[in-house]
């Protein structure tokens, strides 16, 4: 771990005053940042420990629910408001990592966690995300974890979060603050595709602090699911995951939400596919059509070709679970 200096401000303004430099990082739960620092992948010179900032509350606001950036993943998952209105988010959180990691991991940190690409993690290999311009050794190599949608010739990594897939489906909004002011970023615009600057995971500017994530008031408490497919039954990242939510009135689907994890550099939403489903009765054939639409441009990298078919089936099954109102259980490993 490279040497660094450390501060622990108690006010947001103090934290922002220290932020900004290329080599400064915010430290929240540390479960991703400290991991990467030990691997010498992240090499900050200064850490601003934000865990004492007053950003750890879940508040009712007019437009919905405002989740402070420092709310722990486990607290968020078990918050009654979240369990009642957005059980999809609880499910996604409880599918992520392990109980003890969720006791450290924060909302903001989860949002900003970095890819699990083997090459990104191993400084003996070439990686554009770690070292812009070095090349991407994953291409043509081991790509089980890698993207089938939205990849670029510069990077084929995926975003590993479960929480973010649910938030994408729920149309969350990210609140950020910097020394110069505050702004909000719609969730879909928060994470980005790699393009030719894969070193940038998000549209956050240097020095900007995520202060909260806002969930719109619309509740999805009957027809939803989070279906995560992975290499073991727990404590593994998604190969493919599906967050699905909808309203069902008189046998017709409205307000359909569908987001995929494990398949792209960001949680993947496809509004066209959602539109295709809206206003129709839930049927497998229709779900398949939506899946085809989403995956029309999907491209495998060899070892991950199977994820296209896996995603297709997961989408159909996820929509089916949501429509039937039988969300995937975290503990009962039978696929609902």
């Amino acid at each position: 771990m490279r040497r660094f200096s450390y501060s622990r401000p108690t006010e947001v303004s103090e934290a922002l005053a220290e932020a900004g430099g290329e080599d400064v990082r915010f430290l929240a739960g540390g479960t991703n940042l400290v991991d990467l620092m030990k691997e010498n992948v992240e090499r900050p010179q200064h850490l601003v420990d934000i865990t004492r900032l007053p950003l750890d509350r879940i508040e009712e606001i007019q437009s919905g629910l405002k989740i402070g950036a420092l709310v722990l993943n486990s607290d968020l998952a078990h918050d009654p408001k979240v369990e009642n209105r957005y059980p999809l988010l609880s499910l996604a959180l409880l599918n992520g990592a392990s109980p003890q990691l969720r006791n450290s991991a924060t909302t903001g940190g989860n949002l900003l966690q970095r890819t699990r690409c083997y090459y990104f993690y191993d400084v003996a290999t070439a990686c554009n995300k770690r070292d812009p311009g070095a090349g991407c050794q994953a291409i043509g190599g081991l790509t089980r974890l890698h993207a089938i949608l939205g990849a670029s010739p510069h990077c084929i990594a995926t975003h590993p979060s479960d929480m973010c897939v649910a938030m994408a489906a729920l149309d969350a909004v990210v609140h950020v603050e910097s020394a110069t002011g505050t702004r909000t970023i719609p969730f879909e615009d928060f994470h980005r595709l790699p393009g030719d600057t894969p070193q940038r995971d998000t549209t956050l500017e240097p020095g900007e602090l995520v202060t909260a994530v806002e969930l719109p008031a619309t509740r999805f408490d009957r027809h939803y699911t989070y279906l995560k497919l992975r290499d073991r039954q727990s404590y593994a990242f998604a190969l493919v995951s599906v967050a699905a939510a909808m309203r069902l009135e008189d046998g017709v689907m409205t307000d359909v939400r569908l987001a995929l994890g494990g398949v792209a550099h960001k949680p993947w939403r496809d509004r066209d596919a959602e539109a295709l489903l809206s206003g129709k009765a839930p049927e497998r054939a229709l779900f398949s059509k939506a899946a085809e639409a989403i995956l029309a441009d999907a491209q495998g990298q060899g070892a991950n070709d199977f994820k296209i078919e896996l995603a297709r089936r997961a989408i159909v099954r996820g929509l089916d679970q949501a429509a039937r109102g039988t969300p995937q259980s975290v503990t009962d490993k039978r696929i609902a």
């Binding site: 699990r116 083997y118 993690y121 191993d122 290999t125 050794q137 081991l142 073991r232 593994a236």
Partner: peptide
């Protein structure tokens, strides 16, 4: 490159309790 790449317990999967 002749190198093991999943050299960690997150990506070398051993059975967990579940």
């Amino acid at each position: 490159i002749g190198r093991w790449m999943n050299h960690n317990l997150a990506e070398y999967h051993v059975p967990v309790n579940a």
